[in-house]
Nucleic acid binder design. Structure first.
Ligand SMILES: [Zn+2]
Ligand SMILES: [Zn+2]
Ligand SMILES: [Zn+2]
Ligand SMILES: [Zn+2]
Lengths: 143, 143
DNA sequence: GTACAACCTGAAGTTACTATAGAGAAAAGT
DNA sequence: ACTTTTCTCTATAGTAACTTCAGGTTGTAC
C-alpha cells in the first residue's frame, strides 16, 4: 500500500508519516520503481501504535522508548511500566498547574463586574499589580 | 536603566526582553551613544504586565490584544473581559482534555499488574489495540 | 495525449523562547 | 592610564511536533 492509504488507516496526514520516517519513529519502507513508498501490515501496526501514543500526548522520546522496548519481547516489562508511569506523572503535574492557573484567573475575573472604562477595569489593574514571579522551569513536555 | 536591570526587575532574561521587542510586544527604547538600550518606568510597567500575562499562560496574541486595548483607556473594557474570558476557556478546555487523558491512562495502566514479559504486557497490548482516532484539532494554544 | 490526483524532495513557518558566537562598550580594579 | 571583567550588541540556530509551500515526477482515467 502507498502512503496515502497508510495515512488514512492511521488517521493522520501523509506529511506526518514522512515526518515520522525522518524522525526515526517509523522505518523507511521499500520503494516502487517510481520511487513511491510501499507499506505492509507491520507498518500499519507500528504507525497506529505511534498515533495512539500521541493521542495520549506522549512525546516522541517516550514513544521511541516504548517502541524500542516492544522490540525486545522476551524481556520484562518493568521499563515499559516505568515510561508509562512517568508519563502519567507528566499529565498529573500539568493538571495541577492548570488547576492553580484557573484559580488565579477566576480571582482576577471577579475584579471586573461589567462594562467599565478600560483604565478602571479590575482585570487590567490586577494584571498590572500582580507579583511578578520568576518563570517556572517546566518539568514536563506538556504545555 | 539598561536592559540587564530591566530584565532583573521583571524576572526574566535580557534575551527575552530583546525577543519581546522583535515581537512587537515591547516598544523599542532610546539608545545611548554606545548603542545600548535605555529604559524608563513605562517600560518596566509594560514588561511586568507582559510577564504577568505569560505567568497566566496567555499567548503573545492574547497579550498583544490586551496591550492594544489598555492603550485606549477611555473605551469600555468589554473587549478586555472577552479576551480574558476566552483565555479562561482555553485553560478549562485543556483541563478537561487532560482529565480525560488521565482516565484513559489509568485504565491502561491497570492492564499490567507487575513484571511480565514485554509481549504479554497489558499496557503495550492496550496501546496497540486502541481505537485510533483522528487527531483532534487543538482549539487552544495550551499544549 | 492530456488532464488530474497522488506522490516525491527540500526548505521554511509555527510558538515562545534559549543558546551560541564574535565583537564592541562600560565599569571596576590596580 | 591600563588591564580585566562584565555588560551589551547583532545575527544565527536550536527546541517539539508537526504543517505548509514550492517545484517537480508518477500513475491513472478519459
Ligand atoms: Zn510524558
Ligand atoms: Zn473589565
Ligand atoms: Zn488563551
Ligand atoms: Zn507491563
Amino acid at each position: 500500500m502507498k502512503i496515502g492509504k497508510l495515512a488514512q488507516l492511521a488517521q493522520c496526514t501523509v506529511e506526518t508519516v514522512r515526518y515520522y520516517e525522518r524522525e526515526g519513529l517509523l522505518a523507511a519502507p521499500a520503494r516502487t520503481a517510481g520511487n513511491f513508498r510501499l507499506y505492509g501490515a507491520a507498518h500499519i501496526e507500528r504507525l497506529r501504535f505511534i498515533r495512539n501514543c500521541r493521542a495520549l500526548d506522549m512525546s516522541h522520546d517516550e514513544i521511541r522508548n516504548l517502541l524500542a522496548l516492544a522490540d525486545r519481547p522476551a524481556e520484562g516489562c518493568g521499563a515499559v511500566n516505568a515510561v508509562f508511569d512517568q508519563h502519567i506523572v507528566h499529565v498529573d503535574e500539568r493538571i495541577r498547574e492548570l488547576a492553580q492557573l484557573k484559580e488565579q484567573l477566576s480571582a482576577l475575573r471577579q475584579r471586573c463586574a461589567g462594562e467599565q472604562a478600560v483604565d478602571t477595569c479590575g482585570i487590567l489593574q490586577g494584571l498590572a499589580a500582580m507579583e511578578t514571579e520568576a518563570r517556572h522551569e517546566r518539568h514536563t513536555h506538556l504545555g
